[in-house]
Design a binder for these strands. Structure first.
Lengths: 212, 212
DNA sequence: AAAGGTTTCAGGGTTTTTCCTGATGAAATT
DNA sequence: AATTTCATCAGGAAAAACCCTGAAACCTTT
């Protein structure tokens, strides 16, 4: 029987998902963990490798993307089925690069989860029309906004710009003159192709460069 | 057998929770819904009143608090067991005012859920020191500022202010003069106790009033 | 009809942000 | 040694954001 493991920070979700999947009869849940570190610990034991890993993206500590990256580097033969609440474009792309075999939103039904599991066992992958469309768009114009390369000082300013501090306050914090802060600000606007501070915050957030 | 209903916007969580609770044998799940409006619709049918309602706080449209408030006003004899994620905060106190019979974080285990359900049936409530302490710590940690009460037009402006639009553009979108937008902006700053637009965005976000 | 609240708006003032054209010295590269 | 790159800064000007004092028009409620 195909084995399944679950990594999600909400214990009650893990537990109930385990109950649901075991009720499918065609699958057996062999372990569940609540964060990325624990997942990696389990995956290091050869005897505990599942056929499919249900992997939540948003977890404290090491998140799903980091786990997927680690597994990719280790070249583990485990099919990852990513689970996420938000429909975050960027994480989809990142996960794909690490060979994730399917991508589910938490708004799916039990039936669709079962289909996904069956499909992964049978065909090795599962992509909903929605994700497939995103992939299509990605390949179509694969210049879907690269994440700008930032120098240290710019990264630092970016963080401060995503608080309610004025530029005067930021200049003090960074031990710079206001002019310098202004130059860096202009460069950030240019690099991110935005027209004001809010736009910068929104785009940096969507690219995962800041945490709100 | 005591009956249970579930309201949570994540379908897969509803489905798996249903599977888990049915597996407890002592309870029967009679319906699940994905948002507050649906919950109220179901609760209006006397024949479908559950003994216990597992109610998620964060839902699109009508959230758990609004449902609890409605039920309180209707004086429904349904025990509410609130469910919440760690990151949705100061709503706890509001829920308590509406006579919620128990409060669980989503980090609890299946076993604790079962205990909670049994306790509510037997004693009418479930507040373990463990959970109470967890919630207490949790509230203490967060800045438990009350969520401001906003009028419709203010809510609308808040959404626009969390985009990169200028006030001129926003005024056009809302069919208002720039002065009016400016007045509303001032009131929002006052209500949220912030000093600029970024601060507003950050606080509104932390209170779950906007989605980035 | 009076009172009170809500929604909308004017005008003018101050501060901050945004945009621009530069420039200096230090460090790295050629 | 000359060139390029980098981090830093000046000063001015336009635009936008922010703050303040009202007030008209339109609701409801008394």
């Amino acid at each position: 029987m195909p084995t399944v493991a679950i990594a999600d920070d909400h214990k009650i979700f893990c537990d109930s998902l385990e109950s649901l999947i075991n009720a499918f009869d065609a699958f057996e849940v062999i372990w569940t963990v609540q964060d990325g570190e624990q997942a990696i610990t389990m995956l290091q034991q050869k005897s505990k490798l599942p056929d499919i890993l249900l992997l939540d993206i948003n977890m404290p500590g090491k998140n799903g993307i980091e786990v997927a990256e680690w597994m990719f580097q280790q070249n583990l033969q485990v099919n990852i089925l990513a689970l996420t609440m938000e429909n975050d474009d960027n994480s989809v792309i990142k996960m794909l690069q690490y060979g994730v075999k399917g991508y589910l939103l938490k708004s799916v039904s039990a039936e669709e989860l079962q289909n996904a599991l069956l499909s992964i066992v049978k065909y090795g992958y599962y992509y909903t029309p929605h994700v497939t469309k995103q992939i299509g768009n990605f390949i179509a114009h694969k210049n879907s906004e690269p994440v700008p390369v930032l120098k240290d000082r710019e990264k630092e300013l970016l963080q401060y710009m995503c608080t309610d501090m004025s530029y005067m306050e930021i200049a003090e914090k960074m031990f710079l003159s206001e002019s310098t802060v202004d130059s860096y600000r202009a460069r950030l606007f240019e690099k991110f192709n935005v027209k004001n501070r809010i736009g910068l915050l929104l785009k940096a957030n969507s690219m995962g460069l800041i945490r709100l």
